[in-house]
Structure formats: C-alpha cells, structure tokens
C-alpha cells in the first residue's frame, strides 16, 4: 500500500511543483537535452522502483 502511494506521490509532486507552479523551470532540463516526456518517464520509473523495493521488504 505504501509502495503504491509512492507510485502516485511522485507524479503528483511533479505535476503540482513543475506543471502548475514552476513551469519555466523545465527549461533548465530542456537545455540539458532532456524532454518533457523523458522527465515524466523518469518520474514514473522512480515511483515504480520505490514500489518494487517496498514490496520486497
């Protein structure tokens, strides 16, 4: 259950912090060649890794 909440918390945190509040800060990552799709994918992957780790504990 805690692991599943991580899978939701990470995208929610990114959405509220970057998409709503600080959208311009994406340009820091864009200038490093990291696209929006890559950033969202990494957020989901990190959430998934947390889920798997907590499932194994």
């Amino acid at each position: 259950m805690i692991g599943l909440s991580f899978l939701l918390i990470a995208p929610f945190a990114q959405y509220s912090f970057y998409e709503i509040k600080n959208k311009n800060q994406y340009y820091y990552y864009y200038n490093l060649g990291i696209s929006n799709v890559m950033l969202w994918t990494s957020t989901f992957v990190i959430g998934l890794i947390n889920l798997l780790i907590l499932m194994m504990i």
Binding site: N22, N24, Q25, Y26, Y27, Y28, Y30, N31
Partner: peptide, 11 residues
C-alpha cells in the same frame, strides 16, 4: 540552447 524570458533556474 535557449534562454527564456523569465527565470528558469530551479529553486
């Protein structure tokens, strides 16, 4: 690379 009009540095 692109410098936008507004501040883009992360806090």
């Amino acid at each position: 690379n692109y410098l936008p009009q507004n501040n883009f540095l992360p806090n």
